[in-house]
Design a protein around this nucleic acid. Structure first.
Lengths: 141, 141
DNA sequence: CAATTATATTTAGCAGACTAAATATATCAC
DNA sequence: GTGATATATTTAGTCTGCTAAATATAATTG
């Protein structure tokens, strides 16, 4: 009977991710961002002019979620939208200067969050952890 | 430079928990529950007549979140609310029969979810994983 | 006992996330 | 080329979650 252990892992995972989200959310508010918006911007930092469908793919979420996130980010002046000239169904998303400027500060926040999470875990254990998480990731797809 | 590894862990954690949430949400819809409501009910299965503040404590969320969850669960007939007789500020939450009946089916869902997540991970590795997660959990509090 | 302070809950408003259904545009097939 | 189908996005409505502010009641303190 390993049920107790299994259950602890599932619940533990849940607690960690929600606590992380809370901490991270608070931290991002200093940059006037909401949690999740950083990941959308990250896709744009890799390259502008992406469609909303591509953002869905990257964020692994549904189209209406992207519509709302994009609307919010646009209203706050981090991005702007432009309809594709060849295919009028498509909206292409671009960074404003204000959006570009966030790259470095967000990366710093990421690093801080990472360091806090993995503090006091050895390099060797981090590798093991990473492998186990990759295993879990492929299990639930 | 272990930054790449650290980053993978943080992102991996995020991907796992959101994918878990998605899968789990879908699974719970079969019982007419939304994700998170099971955890609120779980507290009630341990013992009825709890206050909303105690539910906050258990769910690790803010009072307005509990207000909404309780409202939704009440409207769907899983719980009912009763004002405390001695202290009129307090609302006490009780399970209906419909709410009590969900205990077993929800536990089955939990077990299914756990098994899927940890499939192909050895007993030994599960123990290591559990310890590493406890470490992370205490890191971010 | 009246005024202040503390506690429990609710309301309003916003964010991410979802589904189902609507809209707009493109493409494909006849 | 017109009609059916496919694709991209939006709208409406739901949920969990949050913060800030309002409300109601209780306890404390002068």
């Amino acid at each position: 009977m390993t049920d107790a252990v299994d259950c602890d892992i599932r619940q533990s995972l849940d607690r960690i991710s929600s606590q992380m989200r809370r901490n991270y959310s608070e931290s991002l508010r200093e940059l006037n961002l909401y949690v999740g918006q950083d990941n959308l911007l990250y896709r744009l930092w890799l390259g502008d002019g992406v469609t909303q469908m591509q953002l869905c793919e990257h964020l692994k979420c549904e189209p209406p979620t992207v519509t709302n996130m994009v609307k919010s980010l646009e209203q706050n002046g981090f991005i702007y939208r432009k309809r594709d000239e060849k295919d009028a169904r498509i909206m292409r998303i671009f960074l404003t200067d204000k959006g570009k400027e966030l790259e470095t500060p967000v990366e710093i926040k990421w690093r801080q969050q990472q360091e806090k999470l993995l503090k006091s875990i050895s390099k060797k254990d981090r590798l093991i952890l990473k492998q186990l998480m990759q295993q879990m990731e492929s299990n639930i797809l």
